[in-house]
Amino acid sequence: MLSLSRQSWLEILAEAWKVYPLEACGLLMAESARSGQSSSGQTGLDKPIKVFRPIHNAAQSSRIFQLDPMEYMKAERAADDAGLEVVGVMHSHTHTAAYPSPTDVAEATKPLVPPTWHWAIVSLAWGYPELRSFRVAEGQGDWSTRSGIAEERVWLNG
């Protein structure tokens, strides 16, 4: 489940519109467990999102995104200072549904992308923004397809 405030939800949709016709991207942050085990994904998978932080799309493309590495680094530092940690990534699809593309699956299953990360995707393909969220990792998804994609509920918590 992706639990977030209406404020964060609006910020995410606004960022997608703002960057259109290019793909937008950003990071989702939740309270850090400070235990050193929080990012291993054993517990607290559905901690509510406290901050959405837009990140410049270094690819400057309407088809792909790449988090600007420098902004990513600064976001990590800001998260540390605020007692938060990165728990997911958001990006927009300008021409297709809010569903992980083959490129998304390939990138999400790379070694350093935690299988616990939320993959929040905003589609602008239909003229109105639609936000859906997924877990994308080996073994995720329907048993019959093993697509690596499991949709999760988006829950507005206030």
Partner: peptide, 10 residues
């Protein structure tokens, strides 16, 4: 020194 993976998608 900071070390970061590239995060990307389509």
């Amino acid at each position: 020194v900071a070390i970061l993976p590239a995060v990307a998608g389509g």
